[in-house]
Amino acid sequence: MDNRPVISEVPAGPVPVPGVVAALAGGAAVTPVWRNELGGLTFRLDGETTRYVKWVAAGTPEIDLPGEAERLAWAQRWARVPRVLDHGTDAEGAWLVTAAVPGRSAVDPRWQAEPATASAAIGHGLRLLHDALPVDRCPFDWSVERRLARADERVADGEGPADWAPEHRHLDLAEARARLAEPPAIDRLVVCHGDACVPNTLLHDDGRFAAHVDLGTLGLADRWADLAVATWSLEWDYGPGFDGILYDAYEIAPDAERVAYYRLLYDLA
């Protein structure tokens, strides 16, 4: 059974190309490569060079492409992330254009067939990110307090247990919110990726970590905010049994309390 709490995937059928994406492409070939659970689209533009365009319709506040452009520009001084080429907004939506970086997504069929190798690369890449990005120079926040405010907004909009992952649907709103009100002490404050799911790591063909993508919520938080989601997402994309490989590659022992807390926070916020 698929236990993923959200659905992001390679589009299976025809995808209308937004006008701004067609204009940015010029004579380049346009290929839709990803659709996230909120309807945001990513296209590959193949011309003299390869570029990627992320596009989201106006009125989708959960996806902040100008904010992602700012985060990428900051992070690229220390970490392997895509280089921003352009970004903007119009009445129809917002877009972000980045240069291609070497590597394939960890959900590529190549790595679906070798999940142990991919799990190790994801863990190693996450450790590199956490060690490289300077906490004292980071202007972006991904704290529990900020994310709890977002969780409360979603509850006010009518979301509840039916919208959560299967692991959390036995909780009622009051119990879930009470658990989130008591976060564990911070183990190590780092600059977190913010969405360290399997698709957001790129790997070289030899299985080494290549780069991180989709850093729209990058910010300061306990490293377990990333680790909990990274190991959870291994189950969604590869099946159970690979989390130990990721922990070993990161060089950390599992922490059940922090994993449970940050998975619940991710689900609700």
Rank of each mutant, 00 (worst) to 15 (best):
R137M: 08
D86V: 10
L128A: 12
I122D: 04
D86P: 14
L38T: 09
F140N: 11
R83M: 10
W111K: 14
R77S: 06
R35H: 05
H130M: 07
W111Y: 10
D108A: 14
L38M: 11
A99I: 11
R104E: 06
G39F: 00
W142L: 14
L85I: 12
W34R: 14
D86R: 08
P134I: 04
A79G: 03
V101Q: 07
I122Q: 04
E68Y: 02
A29V: 13
W55T: 08
G88V: 04
E92Y: 01
V144C: 00
F43D: 03
P102C: 05
P115N: 09
R51G: 08
R44F: 03
G47N: 04
T89K: 15
L41P: 06
A118V: 13
L85T: 11
E62A: 15
R77Q: 07
A91H: 00
V84A: 04
D131P: 03
S143R: 11
V107E: 05
V56E: 13
W74L: 07
R83L: 06
I122N: 08
A69I: 03
T49A: 14
H130S: 08
P66S: 02
A132H: 01
H130E: 06
P82D: 01
P102F: 00
H87T: 04
S143L: 04
G125V: 02
A118C: 04
R51E: 04
G26N: 08
L129S: 07
N36D: 12
R51M: 05
R127L: 01
W142E: 11
R51A: 10
R104T: 08
N36W: 05
T49C: 09
V81L: 09
R77I: 01
G103K: 11
D131Y: 01
G103F: 05
G59Y: 07
V84G: 06
L129E: 07
L96R: 12
G123P: 03
R44G: 07
P82H: 07
T98W: 00
G27E: 06
W111L: 13
V144Q: 05
V144S: 00
I122H: 04
T98I: 13
V84D: 06
L65K: 13
P115I: 11
L45I: 05
V30F: 05
T117R: 14
T98K: 12
G93Y: 01
V30D: 07
A106G: 05
P115V: 12
D64R: 13
G40R: 03
E62S: 13
P102T: 10
I63C: 10
G27Q: 10
W34F: 09
E62G: 13
L96H: 10
R110Q: 11
E68F: 00
R44P: 02
P32D: 00
D90C: 13
A57G: 11
L126N: 02
G123E: 04
A116T: 02
W142Q: 15
P66H: 06
A99H: 06
P109R: 13
Q112A: 15
G93L: 08
T60Q: 14
P61N: 03
W95Y: 07
V135P: 13
V101C: 06
E70R: 15
P115H: 01
W34N: 12
R83G: 10
E92H: 11
A75F: 00
